[in-house]
């Protein structure tokens, strides 16, 4: 996944890193798949010491495993379809170093830091632990988005599909 020409950490590397980071954690309780939202395009910049990549992503899957909930208790699987959307800023703290060939090894080396901004409120609502007070199936619940202005692009839950 590295740039073969200059062995630098590139946007494609960041995409792959985020996929491993997201699937590695969410995949423990959601059976599904990861996609990168390409709509924000090439989003990279540098600070004095680090190089940053912005990756907007979505992980969709069925809730099949226990999720840490309250303290040491767990939210039992609901079989609900859950979409997790987030934005991860991938910070390469060693931008001038050549990237390692093996991405997993690179990520475990500690030079890459993740700043994750995830819509957890929507996740817990889809599971049913918010508002309803306890997990429940969502078969009969339909969502109609509130009017938040004309510029708002449709989100994953704007469609009236039955899950």
């Amino acid at each position: 996944m590295k740039n073969d020409d200059d062995r630098q950490f590139a946007l494609a590397t960041a995409h792959a890193a985020v996929e491993l980071d997201v699937a590695g954690v969410l995949g423990a309780f959601l059976k599904g798949s990861f996609t990168v939202d390409e709509s924000i395009g090439e989003s990279t910049w540098r600070s004095e010491t680090s190089q940053f990549f912005a990756v907007r992503w979505r992980f969709e899957g069925k809730h099949v495993g226990p999720i840490p909930g309250f303290g040491h208790t767990f939210i039992a699987p609901t079989e609900n379809m859950v979409t997790v959307s987030g934005l991860t800023l991938v910070e390469n703290t060693a931008p001038d170093d050549a990237a390692l060939d093996d991405l997993e090894t690179l990520l475990r080396s500690g030079t890459v830091v993740f700043h994750r901004f995830i819509d957890w409120l929507a996740v817990f609502a889809q599971i049913g632990v918010l508002h309803l007070g306890r997990p429940m199936p969502l078969a009969d619940i339909r969502f109609v988005p509130p009017n938040r202005g004309m510029s708002r692009r449709p989100g994953y839950n704007d469609q009236q599909d039955d899950r």
Partner: peptide, 17 residues
Amino acid sequence: TSVPSAYLEWGPPLLPI
């Protein structure tokens, strides 16, 4: 939950108790 951390060192937020 937005505090930066290393690869795989994160998880769902714990709901308040």
